[in-house]
Design a binder for these strands. Structure first.
Lengths: 345, 345
DNA sequence: TTGTAAGCGTTATCAC
DNA sequence: GTGATAACGCTTACAA
């Protein structure tokens, strides 16, 4: 006959104490995992047995209250429907869960970051990871008294991790240049996201080194979505005085949209149009032809951010030494090729 | 001079009470949102002002402890990387957040459902939504004393919501049959998921009504992933004695993989091969040609599940009246067409 | 109508 | 080593 947890009320340290014939405090000492808790071996065993027999499970809510720490962190991302952010989150989650922290996920698409932050504070989260959301532009006190780590976003106020965004742009430019392209366009998000700006900057800088500049018509702004990428590419294809032979899109979603627009318009990729994306989300290898793109280590970005956050939570004093941006690499696949020898439109 | 929250310790009801010149309990009465709290209008206003001035924010952890409810629910899904589940989750999240609940997301791919459940209990979640995960097969007591709602999974023990899975299969079969296909194959997941089994059943049943049966070679089992769909389709294409002219895949991921395999093998879609998926994830419209599929209302599924769960949390007594399965509908797009007139091979 | 006081389940500081 | 005991911030009878 195993002891039944009668679902009515759950087992507490008091129950365990009674069962083991010790005081409640002793149970807490034994089960609390406090390293410097000196308890006799015999008592310890009795307590552990009793706990196991009764199916004791510590109440984290109560622990949180007294310790003033919830062992929960919040994560705010622009939109989960972009697989890139999902990967970042998955990296965070892995590290956090292993360390005994729970993760409260917030999609800034449903609800404004400010409101998410409010809710997270109410729940006493210990810290927050913010990904590409302009933390600086939040209500000044929205982050007061909270440990914050930023992903892909610079700040002198908080620590963070980032990928090598200018490097990503350069890599894309280099690849296209190496293939022999000279008529090159860029599709970048309209939203003011630091990473995107830097990708653009690196890209343009590298082009300029080879004496190539982007006519303003060939610098399209769009929301970072598939649909917007499609629209941008349609506009590019419709240009009267010749069209580009290659396009770099600031993220894969845009590139996927651009690819779709080309195929829909009967423009062969990569024969008539080369396309380079950025992020290397799983989808990049689902489409045909597979997307040439700059791979960004999303999961690793998330994992590092989480590690930084947890370390700061454990020892708040320790100063943060800024990390080098994570390297990116070019993944050459099916959407890039040399420009056609004689195609002036 | 606005009052500063000195980051050191946050504002409590005591602070507000002192500021307003009332007792702490009164503050709780006013701010606790208790409907039957009778407080004089004047005091109420004083308290509310004080709270606002000080920037008071209720501590949900403390509230949880005393009320025995955490206002947090857990959600366990097979894998977030399948956009279908992400949609379900987003539906849940919307409803939950609006009602003041937080959501703890668990991806069963990282960690076993059993362990997730353990962690969720420790955090005193009030209830759990389990999506397509064989709740019946979990350790019997893993769900004891918890409100549980199931998505896409039958059970007499717990309430749930489901989509019309057999209907989805029938719809797919009907469409293919109507187009004139007779040589039809099926790719279904190897894992024993109820919804998938039902989709298959509905599909096969409808085929049989027209006197068509699936040769066992044409019934391929695969993990519900793009890669597996690709492999399954390759196997189908390699069949010696003629290949099917159409394939129904039990979910979109598989269909996307199948499409990719066809394009890679130079098999024209839909001219030489018709493909039907199921779920209607966003990706279905990203590929070229766009995927014909059976649309399943994922977000609505999630939203309903959450509503059922919340209702049960508010009034645990109320019996649950089983809901009708949510209807699905066919989305005819670019991957289906009449079979080629004279193609025996 | 408002204040007093008793917990909720845990941790942590003391005496014993 | 172990056991009282006092918090943690809040809700909720019950008393005033």
């Amino acid at each position: 006959m195993t002891p039944r947890s009668h679902a009515s009320r759950s087992i507490t340290t008091h129950d365990v104490a009674a069962h083991a014939g010790v005081s409640q405090a002793t149970v807490s000492l034994v089960l609390g995992g406090n390293p410097r808790a000196r308890v006799a071996q015999a008592t310890r065993e009795r307590v552990v047995r009793a706990a196991r027999d009764l199916g004791y499970r510590p109440n984290i809510v109560a622990r949180s209250l007294v310790r003033g720490r919830s062992y929960t962190i919040g994560v705010v991302v622009p939109e989960l429907s972009n697989p890139f952010f999902l990967d970042v989150v998955s990296g965070i989650q892995k590290v956090a869960v292993e360390a005994g922290y729970a993760v409260l996920l917030c999609d800034a698409r449903d609800t404004s970051p400010g409101r998410h932050l409010e809710a997270l504070r109410g729940r006493q989260v210990d810290g927050i990871v913010i990904d590409a959301l302009g933390a600086e532009s939040l209500p000044a006190d929205a982050l007061d008294g909270l440990e914050v780590v930023l992903v892909d976003e610079p700040s002198e106020r908080w620590p963070g991790v980032a990928s090598d965004a200018p490097g990503a742009g350069r890599l894309a430019a280099e690849h296209l240049l190496g293939l022999g392209h000279r008529r090159i366009a860029f599709v970048g998000p309209a939203t003011d996201v630091h990473t995107f700006r830097m990708r653009e900057r690196g890209f343009v800088a590298r082009l300029r080194e080879d004496g190539i500049s982007l006519p303003s018509d060939w610098l399209r702004r769009a929301q970072p979505s598939i649909a917007a990428g499609q629209a941008a590419m349609r506009a590019l294809l419709a240009m009267k005085d010749g069209r580009p032979t290659a396009v770099f899109c600031a993220n894969d979603l845009l590139a996927l949209g651009a690819l779709k627009a080309c195929l829909a318009a009967g423009v062969r990729v990569p024969a008539e149009m080369s396309l380079v994306g950025c992020d290397d989300i799983e989808l990049a290898r689902v489409v045909t032809p597979e997307l040439t793109t700059v791979a960004v280590p999303a999961r690793e970005l998330g994992a590092r951010a989480a590690r930084i956050l947890l370390r700061r939570l454990e020892k708040p004093s320790e100063p943060h030494k800024p990390q080098k941006p994570l390297p990116v690499r070019l993944a050459v696949r099916g959407t890039t090729a040399r420009p056609q020898p004689e195609t002036e439109r």
